[in-house]
Each structure stands twice: as structure tokens, then as C-alpha cells.
Amino acid sequence: MIENIEGTHPIDSLLREGSIPFVWCPGCGIGTVVNTFVETLEKVKIDLGKVCVSSGIGCTGKVADYLKINCCNESHDNAIKCAVKFKLENPETKVVVFLNDADFIASGADDFIEAGKKGVELLVIYINNFIYIISECKVTPTTPFVRTLDDENLELPFNIPHLAKLCGARYVARWTTLHVRRLMYSITDALENPGLAVIEVISPCLMYYATDGKIGETIDRMRFFHNNTVIKHGEPTENLDIRLQDKIIMGRFVDK
């Protein structure tokens, strides 16, 4: 066992110095997604000078600060806009966008629709944790459950894979942070896809569980993912709503 040694992890060379400890809560799914993404970059042996990462605001926006590859951290709603412009000026670069609810579906949705209309080659990794954390735990367009502490949500959540397919995405998949191997294969496929690729990652959030009125930690949310998910490849995207009592359907839905 190695104790108190910095910089000894095999993929520490891809992280900025002094970035650990991360700002995220214990067990936050964003750290797992970053870990999987960095391991995928190491595994496919891509030229790291030709990868660019863009991110927006909120907890997910900190991803660009921690990676030691070409990164841009944009202001509110401008992550996809910046990525599209970067891709059009540097056609050989693989551009990856890390997004949360606000940048993707709430107020940045028009940029995503325009990127799909243009058919730009982008990899959009959308981290869905069902809540706005920093703005006092308000409900988002994807919150599936009724909560009692702060807000009440009586609407159905947005069906993200269906929207992505209608906008012209050529690769659509959905996983949770528990299924890291499958997420890794999905990122590998999507990096080779010559079109807009959207991967939705459902992530456990410590604050979401706290506001739900139940006492629990992220490990309870992971057990929920373990018991309540079904893998169905090629399922029609109309059936992919996340509802209260149903099982969450995961898989690779569109691959052209």
C-alpha cells in the first residue's frame, strides 16, 4: 500500500497539477465519468494534441479546469457554440463537450439544435443528475420525481435521446455511472463516429438524495441504479421516458 504520494496514479499525467482533491462531493458521478473518459483516451492511443474539451457552468463546468489537454471553459450556455466554432476552424480535432442540464436542455438547447442541423462532428457527454445544485436545488426539465422540500414537480421529464435523434444525432446512448465498461466502449465508438454523438450519463447526486426527504448517500443511489435499470439495445427512442415507478432503459439506441 502506498501512502501520501502525489502523482503516482497511472493517469495522473493527464490531470493538471494540484487539481486533486476535486471540488465535487464524495461519490459524485462526474468524477467517475472523468475517470472513464481519461482512461478511454489512454486506451485508444489518440493523439492528445488533437483532442479539445469544452465545458460550461456548474459542477460539470469544472471538468475543463482539471484536464491537462486542450480545454476551454465557457460562460453560461456557450459551451456547444464554442465547440462548434472550434470544430469548424480545426477540422482534424476531436471536440468533446461536457454538459449539464442548464447548458444542454434548459437555456442552451438552441445551440444543440443548431449543431445537429449543421451536422457537426461533436461528442456530447451529457451528465444528468436531475437537479440544479448550485442554484439552491431547483427542479430541472429532467427531474423525474416529485420532491417535497423546496419545489414540487408535476411535469414529465424531457426525453433526451428522442430529442437527440430528431435533431440528427448519429450516435445516441444512455448509461449510468455504474456501467463504466459499457460507457467506455460507447465513448470509443462515438469518437470514431463522423457526426453528432450524444451520450447521456445518469449520475448519482448527493444533494438530490438529501432534498428528496430521505437520508442516504450516493451509494444508495448506485444500488438504485443496480436494481432498477434494464439494457435494451436498439429500443425506439419514443419509449425512453424516465418515470417514477418504471425501470430506466439503457443501451445504444442509434448507431448509423
Binding site: 500500500m1 502506498i2 501520501n4 482533491p21 461519490g27 448506485m222
Partner: peptide, 17 residues
């Protein structure tokens, strides 16, 4: 197995899974 114990935040994913 190698562990850097001062980086850990105690989430318990590795122990459970």
C-alpha cells in the same frame, strides 16, 4: 492494489462493487 489514502473521500464504491 495500491491506495492513496489521503485522496479518498469514503464513498465506498470500490468496497461495494
Amino acid at each position: 492494489i495500491h491506495i492513496v489514502k489521503d485522496r479518498c473521500k469514503g464513498c465506498g464504491f470500490c468496497v461495494t462493487y
